[in-house]
Design a protein around this nucleic acid. Sequence first.
DNA 1: CATGAATGAGCTTTCATTCAT
DNA 2: AATGAATGAAAGCTCATTCAT
Lengths: 204, 204, 204, 204
Amino acid sequence: MKDESKHQKILQAAIKVFSEKGFYNSRVSEIAKEANVADGTIYLYFKNKDDILISLFEEEFAKIVRDMRAELAREKDALQKIKRFAITHLSIVSHHPHLAEVMGVEVRQSTKFMKEYVNQPFIEYLNIIRSVVIEGQEKGLLRKDLTPGVMKRAFFGALDEMARYWVLSTKKKHSIDEAALQISDVFIRGMMSEEARKTYPWPS
Amino acid sequence: MKDESKHQKILQAAIKVFSEKGFYNSRVSEIAKEANVADGTIYLYFKNKDDILISLFEEEFAKIVRDMRAELAREKDALQKIKRFAITHLSIVSHHPHLAEVMGVEVRQSTKFMKEYVNQPFIEYLNIIRSVVIEGQEKGLLRKDLTPGVMKRAFFGALDEMARYWVLSTKKKHSIDEAALQISDVFIRGMMSEEARKTYPWPS
Amino acid sequence: MKDESKHQKILQAAIKVFSEKGFYNSRVSEIAKEANVADGTIYLYFKNKDDILISLFEEEFAKIVRDMRAELAREKDALQKIKRFAITHLSIVSHHPHLAEVMGVEVRQSTKFMKEYVNQPFIEYLNIIRSVVIEGQEKGLLRKDLTPGVMKRAFFGALDEMARYWVLSTKKKHSIDEAALQISDVFIRGMMSEEARKTYPWPS
Amino acid sequence: MKDESKHQKILQAAIKVFSEKGFYNSRVSEIAKEANVADGTIYLYFKNKDDILISLFEEEFAKIVRDMRAELAREKDALQKIKRFAITHLSIVSHHPHLAEVMGVEVRQSTKFMKEYVNQPFIEYLNIIRSVVIEGQEKGLLRKDLTPGVMKRAFFGALDEMARYWVLSTKKKHSIDEAALQISDVFIRGMMSEEARKTYPWPS
DNA sequence: CATGAATGAGCTTTCATTCAT
DNA sequence: AATGAATGAAAGCTCATTCAT
């Protein structure tokens, strides 16, 4: 029986190696070494090098989606959820910088080099934001003239660019939590409906 | 003197090829073919394959920075400049989709494979936004509690993620101009100071 | 005591797999699967992959040699034996096409990849023909100017090439029995001594 | 412009290496070394390792077919042509033992491992014999009860098995020319029609 | 005896770069 | 300056064989 823990060991090693060198500059042999297995062992658990990256997306992103949904479920309205999304996203990044680096950098690359591969978990992650925006619009908290599909990308892009900077920079000038608050605050104020602006007990 | 036009021809070919296949899946010979020169000729104008990408960033981003500065100079205040930045950025993207694709996708990758290479023009581009934010804060139009260094990344990230989607998607569901307006609108409202909200003749 | 039946099971599996893919394109794991044993089990019965092929030659050819000798013993003279050899050879082929395929194709290859290995059973098989030729010459039935060592190869080669065609072709245009008769007939007439031609009650 | 002589140089090197080790035990790097070119150069002239073998069949067999046809054209009847075929075939073998070895050994293997590849030149070579047999039958020199398609294989097989032995054996007991004469003599006598036997000025 | 996960040597092939022309 | 054939290092992947269970 194949060993589930070995699958994980290789995936974790891949995160480390990919985050350090990038996918294309990483050698399968380096991942094997990092995982303390033989080169050939990799191929007992993954079809090929691409499959390692794809599995990484699928499995790690799925976890993140699950966690994010659980976090947001505890918030009572869309505005709180937006704030929570920002905090949680950047918290994940700061706690799993290697993973964040791989995701942030390779998720784009992947769309190019694996033309056929659709990163479903990534799309789902984006759609969490979309759902929140729609919910907010229905409840009258968010402006109805904003397109959810545009907002999900704008918000994600804003957080992600910040995350990338934070992960790559060695100096960590800005506090990542403070950044999360500022970004969500700008989006919330910017997307808020006129009525909500009057009645909503703001700032939180 | 080296032939300036051939340098350009190769760079334009590289943009096309990189945008189609990504940097790592592009072959130097493909660029040569696209540029109608011999493989070896590439090496008369560029040190190596990496240097093509670096030159591409340097030169193309420099142009963009110049153009963007010129555009913003014609706007009278920070709020207008923010709007103009969004419109111009996405306009560049829609008019130069190949370039945008390379910039958007490879700019991240590049920071990994060229650790030492600091993408100065890219930083300058970001700092255009930073300057606008600072200007807005000084003029009392923008909230002073927002960190310009955070805002520049958030705003750029929002636009860039939108751009990437637009460039990669074949269906072009959302109008890119409409998206530019929505995103700048959200940022402007979100970053606006309380006084400006009362006095500024809004919406533009 | 090693399990004799498992040894056989592996050998039969090997015949099947080798005949389908050829020795070099066959995987030890495929043989194991075909034989319903674990990969490692193969190595309890055979030294290595080469040894499977060698054993196959040794054991299967030994059977064939035994059977052929028994068949020929029932014929009264060299001419009848030549005919019988052809019929029996091609009958074996048509009843054991997998085995024939392996023998026909790999027996040659084997001499190349196992420089040191002398395929003794194969030589013995050829020498059955040689004995028949010598016997015929001694009895005055066959021309004495023919070299038995040349004739054994010519006759075997003729039958074998026919067999290979028959095994590989899907259409089976020529009846294999008819071919056996034609080939032996040509050889008998061609090798017959002048006296025999006058006295021998021909055609058989 | 690609160099035609280099193509040839690689092919000749391949013949040598394949004949020594067999196709599967030959390394592309060994061929490169033997041809005094870099490993990569091989791939400028051949698609892959298989393609070297296929090219070798195509080009070398084509030459042989051409030469054999020219040789036979000079003979006046089918019986002479059969004799000439045997002499020429074994002469080619003795003058190009490496090539003969590759052809003899790999031509079989190839039909198995390159399922899709039909060795057209080999088929043509066989059909030279077939044409001769048909010609002989039409002229009344050869028995009409013999199937040309069976005879072509029998005759080729006889010669080929002899050739293989001669090529592989180090001792060269039998003279190859003598063997050619004996084999063609047996086939001619065996295939001759009754009338020809009476009227044909035999032995030649 | 039997297993099958793990090993790692060794293969083919690619492609950035060079350099003789 | 321009060429493009030649180079050869380097990488992904395979699979015969081993050995702990």
